[in-house]
Design a protein around this nucleic acid. Sequence first.
DNA 1: AAACGTTTGAGAAAGAGGAACACAAATCTT
DNA 2: AAGATTTGTGTTCCTCTTTCTCAAACGTTT
Lengths: 409, 409
Amino acid sequence: MSVPGDLVGQRSETVRRSNLSAIVRELHVRGPLSRSDLVGLTGLTRSAIRGLIGELVAGGLVTEVPNQPAGTPGRPSPIVQPNARGAVAVALEVNVDSLAAALVGFGGTLHQLARVDRPRGHLSVDAIVDDLVELVGPLLRAVDPDALVGIGVAVAGIVRRSDGIVRMAPNLGWRDVPLAQRLREALPVVAPVWVANEADLGGLAEHRRGAAIGADEVLYVMGEVGVGGNMIVDGRPIIGIDGYAGEIGHMSVNPDGLACACGSRGCWETEIGERALLTRAGFDPEGGREAIGEVIAAATAGEPRAVTAVEEVGRWLGIGISSLVNVLNPQLVVVGGVLERLYPLMARTLEEAVAVYALPPGREHLRIVPGALGDDAPTLGAAELAFEPLLADAALQLRLRSPAALVSA
Amino acid sequence: MSVPGDLVGQRSETVRRSNLSAIVRELHVRGPLSRSDLVGLTGLTRSAIRGLIGELVAGGLVTEVPNQPAGTPGRPSPIVQPNARGAVAVALEVNVDSLAAALVGFGGTLHQLARVDRPRGHLSVDAIVDDLVELVGPLLRAVDPDALVGIGVAVAGIVRRSDGIVRMAPNLGWRDVPLAQRLREALPVVAPVWVANEADLGGLAEHRRGAAIGADEVLYVMGEVGVGGNMIVDGRPIIGIDGYAGEIGHMSVNPDGLACACGSRGCWETEIGERALLTRAGFDPEGGREAIGEVIAAATAGEPRAVTAVEEVGRWLGIGISSLVNVLNPQLVVVGGVLERLYPLMARTLEEAVAVYALPPGREHLRIVPGALGDDAPTLGAAELAFEPLLADAALQLRLRSPAALVSA
DNA sequence: AAACGTTTGAGAAAGAGGAACACAAATCTT
DNA sequence: AAGATTTGTGTTCCTCTTTCTCAAACGTTT
């Protein structure tokens, strides 16, 4: 639906904003680039790049440093470095077994990261918000308030993007929790708060900083207690009409299968989730991370029941991935979460299942790889989420920060 | 991956192109609009709109006609009408039981449509190409060659978009058929040929001209002999890295289920495809359209076995739709093809299944509706596919047609 | 019917932004 | 040391949209 906001016309002002943002995005995503790299990437002229970079330097977002001679003829082009303190995002994560807070600088620099374990099960929202505020306190004190672009929050639940309400989070025992609003009220800073599903953000992080850099069509599968995921289509994450997209753990793979926590039955999650693995391996299904570690150790040591359990999860993982490959035709599948650690043990059965269940054309150039970011993927993704408005409209940020830019512009 | 082509910088030239294209797209999609409507839609000023419209009028793409007084104060704004002969697309369709050819004008006007039945089963590519050329001949003679923007082709098979090669089409007996090239060589006109999967194009047509107009997040499910589909995400169709996306009929819904023509087993198609319905209803699974008609008649008359068969297909349709709703969080699901005709008979069991298998947040505002375009959806979508380059860069088309515009520009 | 307010088109001038060009600086090659 | 290559700098030019003013076309009010 077209809302009054999305006007499609381009004006001089939008051109400059767009070009400025393009440069900011390239620098944030690719890291330091020479001016002439930017000329090549954007197609703009040296003069135009110079002017835009000048504005960014004045705004404190980037720094120019002389380049070393490269051994090629010609005058060296100065390196434009994203200023990791010039814009900073705060990331929070509410996971089933831990809380995390991080400070990430423009360009992707991880300034600080703090993680604390929390008991599994249902804690009150008040308690979790309090713990998050306490965890992030020291980090916030290290931030220039003018450089804070926003606060991203990853939650193990279904989140409405527009208002940051956690609609359903079975593993936290939450329903319709207005987490964004609660955090805005509780945090000692004024900044926009963006909440999203942890798997969505894990996928975003792997796409920007991990195993899926540069790939435009990506499927991310994240298995923990629940199974979630994220799809990158044409370089952009799918979020759906309300932000609920990516609940791939609740695809029906076996309509007469096991009952799922969501109320349905035969969900993919009941075959490849943490509990499924533990049950298959003969462990307590509620054994948590510790038990998973034991299964991995046992499977690595060759203990038959553990090996079989892991391979069976791999087979079901392959079946579900095949469905999604047939639906989405990605170039790359990234497997994250607990499944990332299990990956080496089940790569074979996974590939075998994909060879059976995915259509030949779609699996021709398909690569399936484990994630590169480990357990911090959702937190890093939360930071990227908070950076998004800056990347979409860098001018806004510059003007907020330096009134001088407003006058000169 | 960024290729040399996709430069992100904006220049004066790209601004004008982009604005021109925005107007052309709005006119093609929404139909005649007053100049002041366009001012509102684009956010450009009256002067800018005037200049751009002038260029389009000079290029023969649109016509301005005086507007009737609307009963409101103020000078009436002239209506800008897309000129249905100013740009024309040819659409072709290679279906399991028919071939079709159509002529569609800018703005969506259906000038002509011809369809011929063909025997089911494997015909040689030569025969089909010959039949298509013969079918489209009279249509092509009615077209100004300068107004022909392109030729879109819908095929019941898996198609690589980049080169129009039909990789797999089990129901046609085709493998790796270079259909785009064959048609370019065989057709008596010079125009770009774009080939795509029929379900992808059916979804495009429903999105632009049918039941999904204005919706930005859509799932289209098209059931015929095979089952295909298409997803609109953020207003744009998903095609995947090679164009193979949308093979939703080959999601695994029952890994121990029936063998599928694709070589796998338990594909959704084996539960909701034409053969599944016919088998369940006690008909010859190869009975084709005729037998389907009998099942529909029998179910409408209340014959128990037919009713149960249709309802069972409805239930399985609901299960698969639920999976995709959980994955994609669309606002609208459109059911097309044979399933469009069956829809009234199975709406209840479909909705019941969705209530069980789809997560509550995702089905909160979800609407499921039958398609509005009937069997012609893929053909109409093929025309839209051919129009796409014009909508993406209207300037290109104008310059091709009028050298004067090139000089003045 | 005339005066007035409203909406919109027309035309000229202005403003903004990037492109084009010429020149200088920095580097490598011969 | 001279020349070729690449790139930054500064100026001018061009393209495109906006802004501003005026006129046209409509409904409403007196």
